[in-house]
Structures are given as structure tokens and as C-alpha cells.
Design a protein around this nucleic acid. Structure first.
Lengths: 151, 151
DNA sequence: GATTCTGCTGACCGATTTGATCGCGAAATA
DNA sequence: TATTTCGCGATCAAATCGGTCAGCAGAATC
């Protein structure tokens, strides 16, 4: 249940694109501004391109830009583009697993886990992220003092 | 953002223990009933023992049992025992990360992600799991038809 | 048309993690 | 003492992670 460097980088790069609405942004500038290794970032941007989140042009005056308005791109989409489906269990989607005996209800728990992740990640768009205006229920989760407590 | 085999196994084994309240249960029986490789499971049970969730005795009549009542053991505890902290980002806790530029708000998102995971995993005890009486908000998440939709 | 710029892409790399097995020692019981 | 069962480190193959390298393919500029 951890967030990989790749996913973190991807969201940050996408946020940077969302904040630069006009014209292509060079990979190098994204790498610099978010302190991400350039060549690693290029692979990530390629993933984002393949899943239709980003578009790109080569050559002088080339670079990357969002394929859709930042309001229409959720953080969940970005993460899925680089990490694949969210909240898989043993590499399988929770709805496809059946448990037996005392663990019968476990499937419902994993489904709930996925649903709660989705509630946060699908409701938050890149526009929300760069503007700082997170959806209300996300803000409430983040504002809870207990949520900042390590465990 | 995936659930490892180890975590899945750990919760299932713990559920099996929660459902066998009297006396020690042999590793072999746990492995059989939940279809988990025995020797792998033994390592997992050792982790659970080290974190005080389970106790064990060797020899004939030996086996494993819960160190606490099943009502007092959350699924979150079990997962932490085998996987470490939940929802770390790049192997660091989200509260320790600071982002710059357009990604400044990202920390709040990761905090919210962790909080939402905790809301599910800390509120659900092994007793809830084996009885099938999941906490209301967990049940609501799992009952939403959209939550069963793959993506 | 040649050059330069920049993205595209596959190959590769070392370290770590994952999912597991083996073997043996140490308790507990009979 | 023999048997049972857990404790635990060693080892292992495969996958993943985080990242680098090198060369090709378009796009713009001169």
C-alpha cells in the first residue's frame, strides 16, 4: 500500500503541465522545476502520452502539454497511467477474488479500500491540485489533525 | 497502491485465528484452510508474533492464537505488521514530504489518501471481518455498485 | 538540404522486493 | 527419548523499482 516514485513524479509533472496552459513545455523544464531525473521523467511522460493524458511534439519549440483541460484529468487517471489499476490484491482486481471460510468478508473490505481511494483520487483533478482548491471531502480528510500523525 | 500477497495472507490467517477462539491452532491448519504455502505463512505468523498480534507455543499441542480479543485487532495493524507503514510515498511518510511549485498541494492529497485508507482499515476489526458485520461506512463503500466496477 | 533541437523507444543495469523453499535448531509434549 | 511444532536465518528465482544510455525519428531553423 505505498505510492511509488513513478506515480509521485507523474502527478507532479502533470501538475506542472496543468499550471502552464499555453504551448508545449520541454521535458527538461518539467524535470528541473520538479527535480525529477530527466530521462526517467521522459519514460513517465511517454506513459502519460500513451494513455491519452498528454500530447507532445518533437523538435525545436517542442514539448509536452495536457491533452484535456486540467479540470477533466483526475489524479487517479495519472496514477493508473503509470502504475496500472489502483488497489489490486495479489495482482488481481478485488472483484474477481473469492475468499473462503473466515475470510469470506475480506473481498468486501478490499472493495471498500479501493472505493475509498477512488473517492479521493478520482474526485481531485489537476486543476484542483494546482489551484489548491481540493474537493471538500478531500480537504476534510487532510485537515483532520489525526491524519498527520505517523503510525 | 496494491495489496501484496503477504498482507492478504496475513489478514486471512488472522481471521482464521479470530474464528478459532479456543486454544492454539497449528500453522498447518491455517495454511490448509486458507490455502497458503505453509513455510511462507510461518514467516508471516512470525511477523505477527513480533508485533504482538499473535502468540505461539511449540511442540505437540502447540500452535498460534491471537494475543488480544479479535475486537481489538484492526486489519490495519495486521497489514502494518507485515508491510510496514500504510501509504508511504517514495518510502517516506507523507507528512515528512514538502513539494514545491505547482505540486505544493500534493502533500495534502497524500495525507487524505492515507486518512481514507485508515478510515477503512483501522475501523474494521478481525471480529467484524469474521462476523460479517462491517462498520457502517465500510459497508456503504462496499455496497456501492460502482465500487465493484473495474477500471 | 543540413543542422539542431527535442521527443521516442528499447536495451540495459544494480538494488531491492516479492513470494517462496530449505534446513536446522529450540521448545513443548508424550 | 522421541515426536511434534514453532523460530529463524540462508538462499533463491523472478519481478519490480528507480534510473541511465544510446540511437532513432520528427519538427523547426538556417
Amino acid at each position: 500500500m505505498r505510492v511509488s516514485a513513478k506515480a509521485d513524479y507523474a502527478v507532479r509533472a502533470a501538475a506542472e503541465l496543468a499550471a502552464s496552459p499555453d504551448g508545449p513545455v520541454k521535458g527538461e523544464r518539467l524535470a528541473d522545476s520538479q527535480d525529477i531525473p530527466l530521462q526517467f521523467l521522459e519514460h513517465i511522460l511517454l506513459d502519460l502520452k500513451h494513455s491519452g493524458i498528454v500530447r507532445a511534439r518533437r523538435g525545436a519549440k517542442g514539448g509536452y502539454w495536457l491533452a484535456k483541460p486540467a479540470e477533466e484529468v483526475s489524479i487517479a487517471e495519472v496514477i493508473r497511467a503509470v502504475e496500472g489499476p489502483i488497489a489490486h490484491v495479489q495482482s488481481a482486481p478485488p472483484e474477481s477474488i473469492t475468499y473462503t471460510g473466515s475470510a469470506k468478508e475480506l473481498q468486501n473490505v478490499w472493495i471498500a479500500v479501493r472505493a475509498s481511494l477512488r473517492e479521493v483520487l478520482e474526485s481531485t483533478s489537476l486543476a484542483d491540485l494546482v489551484s489548491g482548491e481540493l474537493p471538500e471531502h478531500v480537504r476534510e480528510l487532510a485537515d483532520d489533525k489525526d491524519a498527520w500523525q505517523p503510525r
